[in-house]
Design a protein around this nucleic acid. Sequence first.
RNA 1: GUGGCUGUAGUUCAAUUGGUUAGAGCACUGGAUUGUGGUUCCAGAUGUUGCGGGUUCAAGUCCCGUCAGUCACCCCA
Length: 427
Amino acid sequence: MEIPQPPKGTRDFYPVQMAEREQIFASWKKSCIKYGFEEFDAPQFEHLSLFTQKSGPEIEKQLYSFMDKGERMIALRPEMTPSLARMVATQGANLPKPVRWFSIPRLFRYEKMQKGRLREFFQLNMDILGIEDVSADAELIAAAIDMMRDLGCDESDFTVHISSRKLLEELFLAHGAPAEKLMDIYGVLDKKHKLPAEVFSAELASVIGDPVLCDAIAKILAATSLDELSTMGPDLKSVTDLNRLFVLLKTYGVQEYAVFDIGVIRGLAYYTGIVFEIFDKKRAMRAIAGGGRYDNLVKQYGGPDTPAVGFAAGDVVLADLLREKGVLKPQPPRSLVYIACLEDHYPEGAISLVQQLRNNDISAEFSLKPLALGKQFKLANAARALYVVVTGGDEETRGCVSIKDMTSGESVEIKKEDLLKWLKEHI
RNA sequence: GUGGCUGUAGUUCAAUUGGUUAGAGCACUGGAUUGUGGUUCCAGAUGUUGCGGGUUCAAGUCCCGUCAGUCACCCCA
């Protein structure tokens, strides 16, 4: 009989993988709560139109969609932001601002898989809605950086690359680029880090056409700092905002993680202002996280005009990074205590003890079939137990049990009625 | 959607380049060990070599197809 295969691009989470996943999720939640974010969730499937409304009809090719029995077009959610925008729009003015929400959704995308990209995955989403000021961008980026630090990463592992959609728009328009060409220019710019310099220039030239304009834009795109940009043209609000953002990030104490990078575009998405991406330092992987300002989205879903900024970090690339760095911890004990009992005492001797511990919230287990004591110790190892309590035998006649510390290998014998107290003191 | 590489035991990989009965580590099960685990020693089980076809006296090995995995391109919300 052939074993059925799981669908393409999905993962089975055996307890080992589940422990890794839980470690990441627990760290994510801790970071979010530390920053005053509340958790929310939404349906795993939505009306297809929720996504096509934001991303256009072509998006359907890249998601799991189907008609349900009521002839409604449904899609498994490929991202969380539309659901968030819908929820916020629904509440309208009722929702106290700023909204500070996070979620860890399971997402589905119909894509051909490759490194760091699957068809089913998780994301951490953090969003701040209702604040137009760059202070919200700074708070969010600081939170994103701390999220990475809480997972055990530091400035030798990752960098936040920051730019601004508005900056590019203002710069290009100020130099006389036609508005209808902006999207095409973004498209080429998005590939800047991947293409050799000559190919990049050639593509840029073919998109822009006018050689004078092309030269001006090439100069802008070669800029590596905000100061450099300031000398190129008139004072721009976006430059002021970005400068302020970097000052704020310094105040947050995270400036060593943040760099200005004009090449950050974030696809052709709905971003309206500051955009950022977190990359591993070697830039060997896909983006670990990405986000930015999307001030029009809630309004686009029929809600009140609500400025917003958010980011998402996928679990796949992040787990790759953490595994490579070796910061993922081994599985925690399945049971803190293993009750071993001598065969003449099986199993009644174990059950009453095991239940006493469980009733006091100490995880405990015992062998469900009679085994030699040596075997029971092997099972205790498999359970990653910290202590083995041996019951029965000579100790029993003395009203005692012996406890073995599985880390040190040392044993002590104590009165049976003192066991709970002893364990509470030592665990 | 396009292309490269790879499919051998549960898993990671061998198999003298086409040659006899496809092997090993790890993991698993049992034993050494009927009162003490991790280390050690012994034994055991597991395969339609992804699937289908072709070439050949002979195919895990070569060819075609197909499926799956993986990597890159496209895209990346």
